[in-house]
Amino acid sequence: MTPVACSFYVRTPVGADQFYYDPINVASPHGDGKLHTLHPPLPGDLIHLWDTVKNLGGTHEVLARRWLHSSYGSFNWPVLEPQPTVGPLLELIVVPAEDAFRNQVLRPDEEGPTL
């Protein structure tokens, strides 16, 4: 099974039903700014993303996904090959989100951090 190359875009509202979609460049051994994984996140999932170009990041919620598969006879799926030589591309739209443990409090018997 070939990994999915995931590209992430942060959606930012700029008006009534209008948005900016800014790419997030994640560290990758491929040097392409994509997350290569066999388990791409689903809409509703929380994922921590760090942009290596902007040097910032945080927790994001996946809003939507768009798959891009290779066409038979293309460079990524040569004629007579039974399957593509490269995995599909997946574009994911995300928005900044709070962490899953945002409502966590200390138990009465636990000591809080000292300042």
Rank of each mutant, 00 (worst) to 15 (best):
P78S: 05
P23C: 07
I24G: 09
H30C: 04
D17R: 14
T59K: 12
P29H: 10
H60K: 13
E98P: 06
T2D: 04
L49Y: 04
V62G: 02
F8K: 01
L46W: 02
L80D: 09
L49E: 04
E61P: 02
D22K: 01
L68Y: 14
D22P: 00
S28W: 07
L92Y: 00
P43M: 08
K34M: 11
L89E: 07
H39Y: 13
I24V: 15
L89T: 09
S70V: 11
P88L: 02
R65E: 12
L92V: 10
H30I: 03
D32T: 11
W67Y: 08
W67I: 10
L106A: 07
N25R: 10
I93L: 13
T37R: 10
G57H: 03
T12A: 07
N25S: 07
S28Q: 06
N103K: 12
V95S: 05
T37G: 07
E61W: 00
G33H: 05
G33Q: 05
P13S: 10
A64F: 07
S7P: 06
D51I: 03
E98N: 12
V79P: 02
C6L: 05
C6Y: 04
K34D: 03
N25T: 14
D22R: 04
S7M: 08
G87M: 10
P40L: 00
T37P: 07
V94N: 08
G87P: 08
T85L: 14
S71C: 08
P78F: 02
V4D: 04
R66Y: 02
I93W: 10
P3M: 00
R11F: 00
H60Q: 13
P88H: 03
E61K: 14
H48N: 14
E81F: 09
F101P: 01
P82Y: 02
F75H: 14
E61Y: 02
E91Q: 12
T37C: 08
V10I: 15
L90G: 10
E98V: 13
L56N: 14
H30A: 12
M1K: 03
R11Q: 06
G73H: 13
L35Y: 06
V53R: 01
Y21N: 11
D32E: 08
P82E: 04
G57Y: 01
G33R: 05
D99T: 15
H48V: 15
Y20I: 08
G73Q: 13
H30W: 07
T12E: 13
V62R: 01
P29I: 08
N103M: 11
V14I: 07
I47V: 15
E81G: 00
A27G: 15
P96E: 09
P108S: 14
P84E: 01
Q18R: 11
V94A: 07
F101M: 13
V26T: 06
V4T: 15
W77K: 01
A27Y: 12
K54Y: 01
A97N: 05
S28V: 07
L89N: 10
R66H: 08
T114W: 13
G15P: 03
Y9E: 06
P13C: 05
T12G: 06
L68V: 15
Q18H: 04
S71R: 12
W67F: 09
F8W: 00
Y20E: 10
D45P: 05
H39V: 13
L38V: 14
H60T: 15
N76P: 03
L35G: 03
P96F: 03
D32Y: 09
G33Y: 06
V53M: 00
C6E: 03
